[in-house]
Design a protein around this nucleic acid. Structure first.
Length: 226
DNA sequence: GGTTCTCAACTGTTTACTTCA
DNA sequence: TGTGAAGTAAACAGTTGAGAA
């Protein structure tokens, strides 16, 4: 396959494999990625040997299960920490080092990427659950606060809105639609008490909101000028 | 011995790129 | 020279099946 520069951008990673200061030389011709590197056979096959792999694909013996050795897994993990995808050269080098077929290295990386994505999704799910819980609690608290303020209802001095200059009904809680500030009127002899509700967002909120589009954050961003 | 879980390997689809008419 | 179809390779999502717990 001819790998173009643009497609390389996602794959081309500087490999720093232990034991390889530079990619090992490979014959450019007759390079079969499914060919077992010479001197192999150290991988731990549970059932049959490597040689009858072809038959398993066309109704031969059942497919056998390979268990990677601890050393192989460690090296693969180490490599995965450095980069999550491999270019063909890196794949070949790693396969040679692990005494595996390049195809097996490729499959391992695919499965590993899938596992880490699953783990990430689970973490995000957990985070969103906790966030939901904290927002629910906050909502409950604010509603209680509204009830208390309503209970304190006093006389109706007219108060002007800080934004529209329209008269506001006294003793009410209003939310400015543009800046989301809660304006309480009628509590302090006609003065206007403005408080900003603080939304408790854990540190990862920004990361997640970029994906899920948290409404609170979005509206906060859009009303920055208020 | 049956069930559940893990994981290597497979299949089908999508995407990006090259080649060629 | 520009363009669309065909071919190719790689990544991904989903699934399968063997083996371990």
């Amino acid at each position: 396959m001819a790998v173009s520069p643009s497609s390389i951008s996602r794959l081309e990673l500087t490999i720093s494999m232990p034991g390889f200061s530079s990619p090992p030389p490979f014959p450019s011709s007759d390079l079969d990625i499914n060919q077992l590197p010479s001197g192999t056979g150290e991988e731990e096959w549970i059932t049959a040997g490597v040689e009858d792999e072809e038959e398993s694909t066309n109704g031969g013996p059942p497919r056998k299960k390979l268990r990677l050795s601890k050393e192989q897994s460690l090296l693969l993990e180490e490599s995965f920490r450095q980069h999550h995808t491999l270019n063909p050269r890196q794949k070949e080098a790693l396969a040679l080092q692990l005494k595996l077929r390049p195809r097996q290295v490729e499959v391992w990386f695919q499965n590993r990427r899938a596992r880490s994505k699953l783990k990430q999704t689970e973490m995000e799910c957990e985070y969103l659950k906790r966030w939901f819980g904290s927002l629910t609690e906050q909502n409950r608290r604010l509603q209680r606060e509204v009830e208390e303020l309503r209970a304190l209802k006093v006389g109706p001095p007219t108060v002007m809105s800080p934004h529209s200059c329209e008269p506001l009904p006294a003793s009410t809680l209003t939310m400015c639609p543009s800046c989301e500030r809660v304006t309480t009127t009628g509590l302090d002899k006609g003065s206007t008490k403005t408080t900003t509700t603080a939304v408790a967002t854990p540190t990862t909120a920004a990361t997640l909101s970029s994906k899920v589009g948290t409404p609170a954050l979005q509206s906060r961003q859009s009303s920055a000028a208020c």
